[in-house]
Computed example of a mutant assay.
Amino acid sequence: MTEHPKDLAKIPVTVITGFLGAGKTTLIRHLMQNPQGKRLAILVNEFGTVGVDGDILKSCADDNCPVENIVELANGCICCTVADDFIPTIEALMAMPVRPDHILIETSGLALPKPLLKAFDWPAIRSRITVDGVIALADAEAVAAGRFAPDVAAVDAQRAADPSLDHETPLAEVFEDQILCADLILLSKADLAGEAGLQAARALISAELTRPVPMLAMTEGVIDPRVILGLNAGAEDDLAARPSHHDGDDDHEHDDFDTIVIDLPEVTDPESLAAAIRTLADAQRILRVKGHVAVTGKPMRMLVQAVGARVRMQFDRPWGSAPRRSQLVVIAEHADIDPAAIRKVLGA
């Protein structure tokens, strides 16, 4: 049988990286709704075992990106499980009866993109796939406030005012590695940052870059898909231009972070739950909370997403025949997480 030229062409892959809560899933939902005539496949890497992001994306599946084209990897950070999880998953996507035209990879918020790029040189896939581009999302409001943009002088000034501040936090290194690997940086939450915040975020990120990288503002994941898809960066062949704090390291440790899953009873007052999450952000330094909860008397499932003290809740779809199960994933730095205290505050 003669192979069609399309079957011989490399499948482009877009790697979407960014810190916890930067808006990666929201961006992918927008791309799914505006695929530019492409049949998409999506690989979602969660940090933890409960696939909240994958579930959100599967609820948006359609003919351009059917449910079977949305694959979740929850066995660990994608940059640490390349051989066991990533390579076999990519091979399975390429072997589907109808090949995808473009693959989107949503990394976990803690993933380093460069080890993932190196995986595209594996013999099993290097002639069949290419990295169209690495898109790094940065929460403009957070960056403008000086979080995860380690200007040493500024951090030292903050240290003088707050002796507990540690500018060697691994979160800063993760953030730097993500933006240094990017072909395009999207400043998310632009509406919350405002023009002054966007300018501050651009300046802080530009100070860390070692090469020119375009930066665009974005709100609610809305941006022209033509800007994202079709960069033709061939990023797997351009590793030297993408420095990493972990160059030369054999391992990328995540021992600094912990994830716990909290099962809750039905929620009678969503605002009380939001207040409890904000309390956790202040008292327990919780980085991220996400999940779904059942609200008493409501047939719709409530999606909960929080970044620090910023909490968003919305009803996303009916429970239908699915069990009305309230479950939240909580992510924090290892030194700060106290499961018993978290469960108590959330009323678990």
Rank of each mutant, 00 (worst) to 15 (best):
H4K: 09
P5S: 07
D7W: 12
K10V: 07
R29L: 05
L31R: 13
L40F: 09
I42S: 00
F47P: 09
D55F: 02
K58W: 01
S59Y: 02
A61G: 05
N64A: 12
N75D: 15
A83K: 14
M94I: 11
A95Q: 14
M96L: 13
H102G: 06
I103Y: 00
I105D: 07
G109H: 04
P113H: 02
P115L: 10
A124C: 08
I125R: 00
T130W: 06
V131P: 11
L137A: 02
A144M: 12
V155Q: 11
A157K: 15
A161Q: 15
S164T: 15
S164A: 15
L165S: 11
P170F: 12
V174K: 09
D177F: 05
L184D: 00
I185C: 02
L186E: 03
L187E: 02
A193T: 10
G194M: 05
S206F: 08
P212K: 03
V213E: 03
V227M: 13
I228Y: 10
L229F: 13
N232R: 13
A235N: 04
E236P: 13
E236R: 14
R242H: 00
R242F: 01
D249Q: 14
D250E: 15
E253G: 14
T259S: 15
L264A: 02
D269H: 13
P270D: 01
P270M: 05
E271W: 07
L280V: 10
A294T: 00
G297C: 03
L303R: 09
Q305S: 12
A306R: 05
V307L: 11
W319R: 07
S321Q: 12
I331N: 05
P339A: 09
P339E: 12
I342L: 13
R343D: 12
L346N: 00
G347P: 00
A348Y: 08
